[in-house]
Amino acid sequence: NIFRVLGDFSHLASIFILLHKIQQLKSCSGISFKSQVLYMLVYITRYLDLPWTSSPYNFIFKVLFISSELYIIYLMARAYKPTNDPNLDTFHVEFLLGFAGLLALLFPYKYTILEVFWAFSIWLESVAILPQLFMLQRTGEAEAMTAHYIAALGMYRALYIPNWIYRYFSEPTHKVDTIAVTAGILQTILYSDFFWIYYTKVMRGEKFKLP
């Protein structure tokens, strides 16, 4: 459906915006390396089923997400390392890993390796933006491209919410993926404050600056 496709393309667009920002400005300043590593972990643990992916659409996106994230991490850790300031990237990710690990072990759909890792990846993704938002809060402002990146990334999961509602009514099984929906709503709520400033500042041509 349209929400799902717009969501996935918003996700893909966010990655292109980030790569464009790093290469155009020859800098990864303002980007949290910790959040990027968490996303890598999200993709690896979620796409363990990559070889068995039957849909070409999903297969292509999975390959794109894994490979582009690897490239982003390479750019941040090697090519543009001097522009990456670890002193600003101080969020304690062990809390996020603990949170996702605990929920994945307590409430997976099934106790299989694939299902536990899948649930872990869903919960981890819901909070993986926190080091990035924390860094933004410390610097108090962001380059326009960094703000566009975060907005596109946040829009992706927000668009999955109408997708789930649409699917609930349009598919005969009326299934609700409780883990994905709960985590997806949490993820979108974490962005809400950012979305508000993005809407009131960046979309009106102003700089992204915290009040």
Partner: peptide
């Protein structure tokens, strides 16, 4: 995918 839930989303 070996999962009866069938994770058909990304």
């Amino acid at each position: 995918t070996g999962s009866e839930h069938g994770h058909d989303e990304l």
